[in-house]
Design a protein around this nucleic acid. Structure first.
Lengths: 146, 146
DNA sequence: ATACAAGCTCAAGTTGACTTTAAGTCAAGC
DNA sequence: GCTTGACTTAAAGTCAACTTGAGCTTGTAT
């Protein structure tokens, strides 16, 4: 496959594919002139990378996961990330409840509302970065049937 | 209060306070020579800002929330953010379950495991940026009693 | 044979939320 | 009078994950 096909199949721009290759996350298997050639299984790779990103792994972490040939998934790392997600989920949940309460709370100042004060205590940690303009993400992974 | 006191009370470095002032998120009420003076209620402001950040608001969004004097919270914005949190929570939950499953799954390739494939479909959207090195966040908000 | 769209490389730019640095001001203490 | 330390400013740096741009090369269609 050439880069355009991979881009289309994965939903990722060619620039990202080059970037991922440079980072060692994917490999091209040769060139046709200048042009990169990819094997079809790169799509699966990219799906895994996308998945990892969604789960909060950094590209570096993802890179450490697949060694040499094929994808060797580090189970401990997975479980650790799952635990981290648990904590995040809990915090986001309090946050969501707090926001809903704040929207209807009648206390004259939020600082006089006990729920709001509890919310303040819950916050503090767990700052969320604004995601990278995820305009429309159109990952078409129907994990192709050969 | 001078900037050092505010820094201590809020847990935020002075550089961040200057940055927030420049962004219009907090105000200093005057100067003693060159030195900024803050009113005590700036601590509450900072607590709100921290809260907003934790809930996923950008600084710009937070800035739009408190108009002029005092904090005027935009209820619609709050509810919208709460809904957004709901979606995020759902996705993170699938993600977490998927990770836990992947860690124990016996299928020869993850691509042969139906749960894993479902996980792949759930992902796609909702990329999480690595949080801003949140070494130790030590917000000491005991919301001071006058 | 020639045009041209699509690739290529390498370097620099973008974003958001800060942090760091360099250079300067100032009150207090020795 | 001089040092020290806490503060000031403006500008530059950081981080991750990409994106963009300039300028060059190529396979393929006319």
């Amino acid at each position: 496959m050439d880069i355009a096909e991979v881009a289309k199949a994965s939903g990722l721009p060619a620039s990202t594919l080059r970037f991922y290759e440079e980072k060692g996350l994917i490999q091209s298997t040769g060139r046709n002139g200048l042009r990169r050639l990819f094997r079809a299984n790169v799509i699966e790779r990219l799906a895994l990378i996308s998945l990892g990103r969604s789960a909060g792994f950094s590209l570096d972490e993802i890179g450490e996961m697949f060694t040499a040939e094929g994808l060797d998934i580090n189970r401990a790392l997975l479980l650790a990330k799952a635990d981290e997600l648990d904590r995040t989920i809990e915090e986001l949940t309090s946050m969501r409840d707090g926001l809903r309460h704040a929207a209807v709370c009648k206390a004259p100042s939020h600082f006089e509302c006990p729920k709001f004060l509890r919310l303040l205590r819950v916050a503090g940690k767990n700052r969320i970065r604004q995601p990278n303009k995820l305009k429309e993400n159109k990952l078409k992974l129907g994990v192709q049937k050969k």
